[in-house]
Design a protein around this nucleic acid. Sequence first.
DNA 1: ACCTGAACACCGTTCAAGT
DNA 2: ACCTGAACACCGTTCAAGT
Lengths: 182, 182
Amino acid sequence: MARADARRNYERLLAAAGDAFVRYGVDASLNDVARRAGVGPATLYRHFPTREALLEALLTDRYDTLAERARTLLDSSSPREALVAWLHVFMAHVTTYRGLATPVKAALQDETSELFSSCHGMQAAWHELLVHAQKAGAVRADVDGSDVLRLVNAVAWATDGRPDEADRLLSLVLEGIGAGQH
Amino acid sequence: MARADARRNYERLLAAAGDAFVRYGVDASLNDVARRAGVGPATLYRHFPTREALLEALLTDRYDTLAERARTLLDSSSPREALVAWLHVFMAHVTTYRGLATPVKAALQDETSELFSSCHGMQAAWHELLVHAQKAGAVRADVDGSDVLRLVNAVAWATDGRPDEADRLLSLVLEGIGAGQH
DNA sequence: ACCTGAACACCGTTCAAGT
DNA sequence: ACCTGAACACCGTTCAAGT
């Protein structure tokens, strides 16, 4: 049973980490996070053994939201529009913290990544969305969903969240999977 | 006029940095580079004020080679094949050191990057290659060369040089610019 | 059961002092 | 004109010692 102070430290650390990641990106100093939380460094490591553990705690429910969003779009729009809209939302997610694309890359392909399982539901929902679009003939049948997701993540990395460039590169990718506007 | 020992230190530092980047990637410790070169840290900073200066010295002639390669391919192959072949060579370049994609990203879009000017000739040659392919109808006329290069660099980043995945993602990009196999 | 903060080995970078 | 290596402020991470 967790002590009250332990629980409080956990919350404070999470809040401080969120702040620091927003300000300085994913590589923000962990000692600084602990300082902001008013806690010793070792306390941070006790609650979150790795930087990825911190990210996981911060992002898990966002991945749930992304999965839900995919399912909502599935019945609400045309298959192509749904897919395009969701990929935009996904890119916005990767832009949450500077440097987030790198851990996301790991999450998308490395089973040992701590974010790997947090992503699983989202990936499943994304695959449904893709298959739906493929069955409607809006996307080529031979493209692999994981490939697309990793490529879109790479676009987010390459454009650093600059919206116009992100949109241009994303259009190229969409064209590549056969989902371009005609 | 440079002293003999200064010149020798310069060469040693360059060699040590090349070694270290190959082993540990672009983020290798600069103190360690100096140690390997048998030189004090300040001597490294005197010759190469920044890590990017080191990269520039190591890569400049490779960019010249890449430019030359583009011009060679221009008359030797079909426009489409030439373009595809060169992009593969470019991706291989980005894989020279682990983590190189990040400075390359800067070089391709940030004028303040020290690699920016080193890249200029290569970019010009690449644009020629692209225009050639576009005139031949092998690539869509509305795609921007810089966009493509940045996207391909992003593919190199996303695949970490794993050849099969790199090829799959690159195919998607090629399809996106209208240069896929039909 | 949990927290503390001093400590370790490292990093990038700069300094006064040397030759 | 160039080099030295000690030094600074930082980093991630772990420790024995506390309550």
